[in-house]
Nucleic acid binder design. Sequence first.
DNA 1: CAGGCTAGGTTTCCGATAGGAACCAGCAGG
DNA 2: CCTGCTGGTTCCTATCGGAAACCTAGCCTG
Lengths: 126, 126
Amino acid sequence: MSGSGPGDLFLADCPARLAVELIADKWTVVVLAGLSKGPVRHGELIELIGGISRKMLTQTLRRLEAHGLIRRHAYAEVPPRVEYELTALGATLIEPIHMLAEWARANGDAVLDALDTDPEPVAHND
Amino acid sequence: MSGSGPGDLFLADCPARLAVELIADKWTVVVLAGLSKGPVRHGELIELIGGISRKMLTQTLRRLEAHGLIRRHAYAEVPPRVEYELTALGATLIEPIHMLAEWARANGDAVLDALDTDPEPVAHND
DNA sequence: CAGGCTAGGTTTCCGATAGGAACCAGCAGG
DNA sequence: CCTGCTGGTTCCTATCGGAAACCTAGCCTG
């Protein structure tokens, strides 16, 4: 695995690093998870993802679109309808995303618990 | 998979969401990948991870420590030596991290390429 | 016909954060 | 005494994040 090959994510200007920075973003993971079930509308994502603002959703979707992970379909209807769906490239990312999501679901409260337990055991000092 | 269960990451105040936001960070993924091989020193991480600054490294490590993913060993030697290693909880995260890293390595230039291809086919304008 | 509705998006404003450069501590060696 | 090594922190600024208001455009309602 993470052999120090030339395509390694430890190099600052490597495509792998770019890819990591693309998805290692507060909203990206959640948005991709939301899209993993098929085409979803902007409004549906807003409803689905608690705490996201329209601005951040649009921004995240635009970035994913620019990087070829999702595709945008704007129907010239009224009221306007816009659907987003994963591209083939984006679909390959769903597996890792789901692993991450399942880890988060499984260990979420272990992490939360650590935040409580951590406060240093004792600094009995002098 | 991502069933709309109660522990789902789509809820804003869910532990799962907290966990996702913990690791969905620019440096966290790379740092954890760097620690996946065993205990590593602060300085080694600086050398290993291209583009990271001391400040961001320390900050990232502190956060991971506070959330129970890594442990910090400060040896009272001179010059000071500090090693970081994964906790048991942190070790469970390595698998998803590696999947992400391998995806990044495999698809890094596809993403990079999409950035080039994307520029809209034509805006023939007026 | 005027006003309001819907749905997606953009703009504005402001507080929070990221990030680099510079500085600090403590001791060994020349 | 001055320099260097190692880990960490402080200062300062550019950028980001988020709430809310505004915009477009067509339809429906009164």
